[in-house]
């Protein structure tokens, strides 16, 4: 089953550096008005590159309980 992982954004912590959007291998994220925006969630494969690279801990994956 898909959907056990969720992509979460904390906009208050985002400084809009653009690292997550640039290194997302699937083009899921974009920066809009200085903040990250999940533009194409359907393309997300929940690889966690954004969480690994965000210096501000403003984007991450949550593993929901099965």
């Amino acid at each position: 089953m898909v959907g056990l992982k969720r992509l979460v954004v904390e906009p208050l912590w985002c400084k809009g550096c653009g690292i997550c959007a640039a290194f997302c291998p699937r083009g899921v994220l974009e920066i809009e008005k200085g903040k990250v925006r999940v533009a194409a969630l359907e393309r997300c494969v929940f690889c966690g590159q954004c969480e690994l690279r965000c210096p501000d801990y403003a984007i991450y994956l949550v593993n929901d309980e099965e």
Binding site: K15, G18, C54, P55, Y57
Partner: peptide
């Protein structure tokens, strides 16, 4: 104490 005070794109957070 978060978000930290480092500049946007600073590598220190990583």
């Amino acid at each position: 104490h978060l978000p930290q005070i480092w500049c946007a794109g600073c590598g220190n957070g990583v």
